[in-house]
Computed example of a mutant assay.
Amino acid sequence: MAEYLVRGALLSCQCGSHPRRLNLPKCHGIYYGEHPMMGEMDCIIEENISYFGVCSSSTPPANAETITLAAYSENVESGEVVEGFICCPNIIGTWRNPHDTSQISKGEAAITTDSYLICSCGGLIQPMTSGQEYEEDE
């Protein structure tokens, strides 16, 4: 069953090496429990979505800088590194497959774990978690 996405949801790009948290700098005023809900328009780079590490697409972002990062591991640092073009998505449109019957503001639907974004570089950006489990640092 799909869950609403809230601030702190963990996202991954199929072409990126590292997952990132979904951000909401200014709350819409709608909460799920204690967590601010996200909407279909919350897909602005560097405001809602950060880069996803190193891009493995055959068509990486134009003018992307080369970076070196510690390889992503859920549990322990592996000591390995990844190097390549930064995975800064170029999102096409807004969140796809929003929850049309739940709105966070007039004309803007809520998004769920079934929602996704498309990057022009070939990546599909999908939620790994809803963010409802995420405890923010105060």
Rank of each mutant, 00 (worst) to 15 (best):
E74S: 09
E46Y: 14
D42S: 04
T112V: 02
G8M: 03
D137K: 13
C87T: 01
E74V: 01
M1H: 07
E34P: 04
S120T: 13
Q132Y: 02
T112W: 00
S56A: 13
P60Y: 06
A9F: 00
A110H: 00
F52G: 06
Q126W: 02
M1Q: 04
G16Q: 07
G131P: 00
C27W: 06
C87R: 03
C121S: 12
I111Q: 00
E83D: 01
G29P: 15
A64F: 07
T94E: 01
T59S: 14
T129Y: 01
Q14A: 07
Y116E: 03
I30Q: 06
G53K: 01
E135S: 08
L11I: 09
G53E: 11
I49A: 02
E135I: 15
M128G: 14
G29K: 14
H28M: 05
A64V: 04
S130L: 09
G84S: 07
I67A: 15
S12N: 15
T113C: 07
Y51F: 14
E135L: 10
F85K: 14
G131K: 00
M37W: 11
L11N: 03
N75C: 12
N63D: 10
T113N: 07
S115K: 01
V54W: 01
E3Q: 12
R21H: 10
S130E: 11
R96N: 14
Q103M: 05
H35I: 02
K106C: 11
N48D: 12
I118Y: 09
C27D: 13
I118P: 06
V81P: 06
F85W: 07
T112Y: 01
I118F: 10
V81K: 15
E34I: 14
Q126Y: 09
T101V: 13
E80Y: 08
A71P: 07
S78K: 15
G84F: 00
S50A: 10
H35A: 07
I45K: 14
A71D: 11
I92N: 07
Y4A: 03
Q126S: 07
